[in-house]
């Protein structure tokens, strides 16, 4: 890929903000002996949606999980290189990964609501983080998060019902509400719509469009239309490398590399 000098933005998009929020440099990752990520360089911009695309097994989800250190949960994983946020290295031993995860939230492939009521699913984490404590404040926060996630009208009359009683698409929006309730800077989404029907998918895509006003969103998808629809930037991963990183319009209309072009036009993937 075209490497610019450090500090310079890697891509240009005239319509969007360019405030850097996460800077990844030379990131390698091993599962035991096998290397899954090779020297990743990537800049992520505030209040943008960045899509990570590529064939399955290319390392895009693994990379996503580096951003909030969810890979720490797998004992055999080893990481080298830097992921910089707020001017400090995320992988530094002094960085508290629990604190990091509050700034970098995550939404998973399969909706995973807690075995609690809809209300408590949203209220639980903010309460633990002492963001709110008084009952009316909690109520407000829950309502705001559910509104932001576009779920409020559907659940406002059944907040005490278990989160698992909702449909798949609703559950996923509940998980998004849960994530935004703790006011993170970044929300990672790991194929958030792959387990959902087309209508729920469209709802969530609209949601991403609105949420980027408040948050920075990084999403993994292997649905290229989705990337084209929602993302401001798109990174194409292949065999553990970033082959091409560009603003979405350029990526899909005029890809710079042959591999990206082949993938986008459906020759493999």
């Amino acid at each position: 890929m075209n490497r610019s000098s450090p500090g310079e933005p890697l891509t240009h998009n005239d319509n969007a903000h360019h405030e850097l929020i996460i800077r990844v440099r030379d990131l390698d990752l091993w599962y035991g002996e096998s290397q899954a990520l090779h020297g990743i360089d990537l800049d992520l911009y505030r209040n943008n949606v960045t899509a990570l695309i590529g064939p399955s097994g290319c390392g895009k989800s693994t990379f996503l999980r580096c951003l909030n250190r969810m890979n720490d949960l797998i004992p055999s994983v080893r990481v080298k290189g830097s992921v910089e946020m707020e001017g400090r290295d995320v992988n530094d031993a002094r960085t508290d990964e629990v604190a990091l995860r509050r700034l970098v939230g995550m939404v998973f492939q399969k909706p995973n609501p807690f075995p609690k009521s809809i209300y408590d699913n949203v209220a639980y984490a903010p309460r633990m983080h002492d963001l709110v404590s008084r009952k009316p404040d909690v109520d407000d926060l829950v309502e705001q998060a559910l509104r932001d996630a576009g779920l409020w009208d559907e659940v406002k009359d059944k907040l005490k019902q278990p989160g698992t009683s909702l449909s798949g698409g609703q559950q996923q929006r509940l998980c998004i509400a849960r994530a935004i309730a703790v006011r993170p800077e970044v929300i990672l989404m790991d194929e958030p719509t792959s387990a959902l029907d087309p209508i729920s998918t469209a709802t969530i895509e609209d949601l991403m469009d609105r949420l980027k006003l408040q948050f920075t969103i990084v999403t993994v998808t292997h649905n290229m239309q989705q990337a084209a629809r929602v993302a401001d930037y798109t990174a194409f991963f292949h065999l553990g490398e970033v082959v091409e990183y560009n603003d979405t319009k350029t990526m899909f209309s005029n890809p710079a590399t042959k591999r990206a072009e082949d993938y986008i036009t459906g020759r493999y993937g």
Binding site: M85, T95, D96, A99, L100, D130, R183
Partner: peptide, 17 residues
């Protein structure tokens, strides 16, 4: 709007304990 990483880390001390 958000707290910084350092602030959160400080708050987390008790919970880590």
């Amino acid at each position: 709007m958000s707290q910084s990483l350092d602030e959160i880390t400080l708050q987390l001390k008790r919970r880590h304990r």
